[in-house]
């Protein structure tokens, strides 16, 4: 096999008038952890369900290991796709024990051994005889993961895997998930609406909006080089300043920002708060009006000469206090061309 493990091409799905997926395409490389992230209702869960075989696309194809599983006249049922799924509410069978849940999809002589191994991988080897309702939320999730991994699927699909956990559990499970998936040598796709979660653990992040992927790549690139202001704002804090290009630069409240866009085009300058470097200076043009101290860094609000307020994220090594006057330097920025001055 040379291509990606899973290849989704041009899939469209609609529910009545509502379009859930619109010419959706996605490649999942072998061994990677791919995050599908987007606001609620963008179709990300539908995309997972199409791959798993629970939804049937109106058009397009899905191929697993270069074999088409749906589209082009084929529609292989879910049970024959060798795709594991972890559901949002875990969907553990309430009427059987943890071990029977995990062993549900395993056949063959070494079934007991396999169940034990997988439970051990998720750290629940002592919990086999319990029932799902006797477990905590985090434990239930591990069982769901173990159950999906037990038949050694080509890929594991996880639908909002952390949404039912409280904040501390979520942090722990994120790290656990990576360890477990790596331990199993599994390829995985997970869906989330939480961009921080996606950035934190995914090898590849794919941002969805209105049924299609807007941008995908490794988290570092997508965060630093969002292809449009919407992605920029979706992935993190962003200051967006409109302007018109003149003489190779856009005039903003933070000074001129150079660009290669032709003169006269309407543009929007995107600056992340950490790309702004305020320096304390007695005759600085800006003034610190507010400050939130986080320990590792701090968020400061700067009032500029014209009265505009912007936020900057700066290391705590720089000692800045409310009332300090500062010079503002823009370290990095991205200029987007916009259709008009309005947005």
């Amino acid at each position: 096999m040379t291509g990606p493990l899973i290849s989704v091409t041009g899939v469209s799905v609609s529910f009545g008038d509502a379009v859930a997926l619109d010419d959706f395409s996605l490649d999942v490389p072998q061994g990677s952890l791919v995050a599908l992230v987007g606001p609620s209702g963008c179709g990300k869960t539908t995309a997972l369900r199409v791959i798993a075989g629970f939804e049937h696309p109106d058009s397009g194809t899905v191929a697993i290991r270069d074999t088409i599983v749906v589209g082009a006249g084929k529609d292989i049922p879910p049970e024959k796709r060798n795709v594991g799924m972890v559901f949002q509410e875990y969907a553990l069978f309430p009427h059987v024990s943890v071990a029977e849940n995990v062993g549900y999809g395993v056949r063959g002589a070494d079934r007991v051994q396999r169940v034990h191994d997988v439970l051990k991988l998720v750290g629940l080897e002592d919990h086999g005889s319990r029932f799902p309702h006797e477990l905590s939320g985090g434990e239930q999730q591990r069982v769901a993961l173990a159950r999906a991994l037990a038949p050694a699927p080509d890929v594991v699909l996880l639908d909002e895997p952390f949404s039912n956990l409280d904040a501390p559990q979520r942090e722990r499970m994120r790290r656990e998930l990576r360890r477990i998936l790596r331990g199993a040598g599994a390829t995985a796709v997970f869906v989330t609406h939480d961009q921080a979660e996606a950035l934190a653990i995914a090898d590849v992040i794919a941002i969805m909006s209105d049924g299609r992927i807007v941008q995908s790549g490794i988290p570092d690139d997508v965060y630093a080089q969002p292809i449009n202001p919407w992605v920029a704002r979706f992935l993190g804090d962003a200051i967006l300043l409109p302007g018109v290009v003149e003489n190779g630069s856009v005039a903003t409240v933070l000074g001129p920002i150079t660009t290669s866009l032709p003169a006269g085009s309407h543009a929007e300058v995107m600056i992340r708060p950490e790309w702004i470097a305020p320096r304390v200076s007695d005759d600085g043009a800006g003034c610190i009006t507010d400050r939130e101290f986080y320990g590792h860094d701090q968020l400061v609000e700067i009032e500029l000469a014209g009265g505009e307020r912007i936020e900057a994220l700066v290391p705590t090594a720089n000692r800045i206090l409310i009332g300090d006057r500062v010079d503002v330097e823009v370290v990095d920025s991205i200029v987007y061309e916009t259709a008009s001055g309005l947005h």
């Binding site: 075989g53 629970f54 879910p78 049970e79 796709r81 799924m85 969907a91 549900y104 159950r147 999906a148």
Partner: peptide, 22 residues
Amino acid sequence: NPALEDASRSLGHGPIMTYVKV
């Protein structure tokens, strides 16, 4: 929860076995 039936399907059991076992 219909996800229970979906789970059974994705774990390799056909529709009839899913109705019987889940």
